[in-house]
Simulated assay, not measured.
Amino acid sequence: MAAEGADRKIDYIEFNVQDIERTKHFYDEVFAWTFTDYGPDYCEFGDGRLTGGFAKTHTVTPKGGPLVILYCSDLEAALSRVEKAGGQISRPIFDFPGGRRFHFIDPEGYELGVWSNA
């Protein structure tokens, strides 16, 4: 049975990663996501609003796909957590119509953005 209101909405995001435990640790430290392991090669994550997965692979190709953008009410605190957890800031905080954001590279090489309207 389909979820009410889910038709034509983004439902799930999946990242191919080489090290699931390292990836889980990073996203737990930065965004406090929750995780459900489904064997040694797959882990589902939840951010409280959207779910996705980390699929173990030997080769990661993090460039060239869509940019995933997360929301945080305190942008400076999020940037600090990214750096403390081992992420690399690829684009420092900048203004755009509607708010501010920054981009970072996670330990697997994926670039994501974080934005705030505060």
Rank of each mutant, 00 (worst) to 15 (best):
G64V: 08
E21N: 15
G46A: 07
D47V: 02
G52D: 08
G39M: 07
D37T: 12
V30H: 08
R49D: 13
T61F: 08
Y27D: 03
K56F: 05
T59H: 03
W33F: 14
Y38C: 04
T61P: 03
P62I: 14
T61E: 12
G53Y: 01
G46W: 05
D37F: 02
F31C: 09
G64F: 09
W33L: 06
D28I: 13
Y42D: 07
Y38I: 04
T51Y: 01
K56S: 11
H25V: 05
G46E: 10
F26N: 04
F31A: 15
K63D: 15
P40E: 10
T59A: 03
H58M: 03
V30T: 06
E44T: 09
G52A: 08
R22H: 13
F35N: 07
K24P: 00
A55L: 13
G52R: 11
D37G: 10
Y42V: 10
G46S: 13
P62T: 14
A32D: 15
T23Q: 03
T51A: 00
G46D: 07
P62M: 12
E44N: 06
G48K: 15
D41T: 09
P40C: 08
I20A: 14
K63A: 13
C43A: 14
T23A: 02
T59Y: 00
C43N: 11
F45M: 03
G39K: 06
K63L: 11
A32L: 13
D37M: 10
A32H: 15
T36I: 00
Y42P: 10
T51S: 05
T34Y: 01
A32P: 02
A32K: 15
H25K: 13
G39I: 06
A32T: 15
F26S: 01
R49M: 12
Y42F: 14
P62W: 13
F35C: 12
W33I: 00
T51M: 04
P40I: 05
T59I: 09
G52K: 12
F45N: 00
L50S: 10
T34W: 04
I20S: 15
T51G: 03
F26C: 05
H25I: 00
P62C: 13
T36F: 04
T61V: 09
T36N: 02
H58C: 01
C43G: 07
G39C: 06
T36D: 04
Y42C: 08
Y38R: 02
G64L: 11
D37P: 08
D28K: 15
G53N: 01
K56H: 11
F35M: 10
P62S: 13
E44P: 04
P62H: 11
V60A: 04
F26W: 08
Y27H: 12
E29W: 05
A32Y: 12
T57E: 10
Y38N: 03
Y42N: 10
D37S: 13
P40T: 09
T51I: 03
V30D: 10
K63I: 12
I20Q: 14
D41V: 08
T51F: 02
G39V: 06
F54W: 05
F45I: 01
T36V: 07
F45Y: 02
D47P: 02
F45H: 01
T36W: 03
I20G: 12
P40F: 08
